[in-house]
């Protein structure tokens, strides 16, 4: 994964970058399967490797696939990124170990979900029952976020098909790829 990320950062050919990011997502999905998070892996494979690669390719077909040459290392952004990364790693030091049964997250409502989900919803996949029923309100919010993303893209680019556009190579963030898991 580190190798693909490094290659994607180095290469100048954007088509290769898109394909490499798809490979990166696929490797991440494999990692999630190893961690027994099948639903998350499924989402990662479908969104990261599938649809975002497709949307990026569609975008590339409208623009060019060559990155403009720009190669100087900026000190301030680099130092900010390094310090933030080090702080995040420092923050993980006093976290409980992975899979620790006494971790706070494993003691709050998770045992209730695991023991009562089948009785209360009759659905074997606990992830589905938690997402759709116990945490239905959150999922509703996520759906509204996706809806808003779609509406936003429509409002920015959609309706003006007859209008003359100032420039067709406008940059548009693919902000709808917030992952739901």
């Amino acid at each position: 994964m580190a190798l693909t990320a490094y290659a994607a950062a180095q290469t100048r050919n954007l088509f290769a970058v898109v394909i490499l990011s798809g490979i990166f997502s696929l490797l991440a999905a494999v990692l999630y399967v190893v961690l027994n998070a099948v639903d998350v892996a499924f989402t990662e494979a479908a969104v990261g490797a599938g649809i975002s690669t497709l949307l990026m390719l569609a975008t590339l077909s409208l623009t060019t696939d060559k990155e403009r040459a720009k190669h100087q290392i900026k000190i301030i952004p680099l130092s900010i990124v390094s310090v933030t990364g080090l702080l995040l790693i420092f923050g993980t030091l006093d976290m409980p170990f992975y899979g620790d049964p006494n971790a706070p997250t494993n003691l709050h409502v998770a045992p209730l979900y695991i023991s009562d989900s089948m009785k209360q919803t009759g659905i074997p996949n606990i992830v589905t029952s938690v997402l759709a029923s116990y945490r239905g309100y959150d999922t509703f919010g996520e759906v509204v976020v996706i809806f808003t993303a779609g509406i936003g893209v429509l409002a920015l680019l959609g309706h003006g098909r007859n209008r003359t556009r100032p420039g067709k190579n406008r940059n548009v963030n693919l902000e709808d790829e917030n992952r739901i898991s």
Binding site: T121, G122, S133, T139, V143, G150, V153, L157
Partner: peptide, 27 residues
Amino acid sequence: QHLGIFLVELGVGITVSATMITIFYVF
């Protein structure tokens, strides 16, 4: 609960796929 989850998941699926297809069309 089963019916509710079914309907809700259907709603999620419809919105997500419609959003993605709309974005593709617009692009």
